[in-house]
Amino acid sequence: MLVQSEVVHCYEELASSISLMLVLARAKEWGRLPELESRCSALVDKLKLIEPQEALDATQVEMVLRLIDRIRVEQAEVSGLIKPQIDDLLGRMGHLHQQKNLGKAYGPTH
């Protein structure tokens, strides 16, 4: 029986989480993305600890490289889908800040 590498398992979990983030971002379902981003961050932190301590065989290295490539491609697409939403949010926040400053200077608007 083959024992699965913890490193490979973490990369599989990371790839799965990024894939789900991509599905949600394509559907414009932004609410679960922060939870998944936290999960991804925790997996990356775990990998930083365990990866240097575990030797992978050639098959495992190939699997990890395929997963990393998938993660990279899907993460880039997620970022591309999220960026316009963040830009819009920042624009709205800037507008609200400007209104607040005008309200302080000239009194509340009606």
Rank of each mutant, 00 (worst) to 15 (best):
R39Q: 13
L47M: 11
W30G: 01
Q60T: 05
V44G: 01
K46V: 02
V44E: 10
E35M: 13
S38W: 07
A58C: 01
D45Q: 13
D45N: 14
K46H: 11
T59W: 05
L36A: 07
L43S: 02
K28T: 10
W30R: 07
K46W: 12
E35D: 12
L36S: 09
K48M: 08
Q53F: 04
A55T: 12
D57I: 01
L47T: 04
P34R: 06
E51K: 11
P52R: 06
E35V: 13
D57A: 08
D45A: 13
L36F: 06
K48R: 15
L36N: 03
L43V: 10
L49C: 07
S41L: 12
Q60K: 04
W30Y: 12
K48P: 05
R32G: 12
A55G: 06
Q53W: 05
A55H: 10
P52Q: 01
R39G: 09
I50P: 05
A55Y: 01
E37V: 13
C40M: 12
R32N: 11
R39N: 11
L36M: 06
T59N: 08
D45I: 00
E51Y: 01
L43A: 00
E37L: 14
D45R: 14
L56D: 00
A58Y: 03
L43E: 00
P52D: 04
D45L: 11
Q53V: 05
K48W: 06
Q60L: 03
L56G: 03
A42P: 02
E37F: 08
C40Q: 13
V44R: 13
K46P: 00
K46S: 11
C40S: 15
W30I: 10
A58W: 00
R32M: 14
P52W: 07
V44T: 09
S38C: 10
P52E: 08
K48E: 15
D57E: 00
D45F: 02
E29D: 13
Q60Y: 03
I50M: 04
L47C: 04
K48I: 06
Q60H: 06
E37P: 03
K46R: 15
V44W: 08
E37G: 07
A58D: 11
R32H: 11
E54V: 13
A55V: 13
Q53D: 10
L47N: 07
E35F: 08
V44L: 14
S41Q: 15
G31I: 06
L47G: 05
I50E: 09
K48D: 15
E35R: 09
D45H: 13
S41R: 15
A55S: 12
K28P: 04
P52V: 09
A58G: 01
E54D: 04
P34Y: 10
E51F: 01
E29T: 12
W30P: 03
W30E: 05
L47H: 07
L33P: 03
I50R: 03
L56V: 03
D57N: 15
K48A: 11
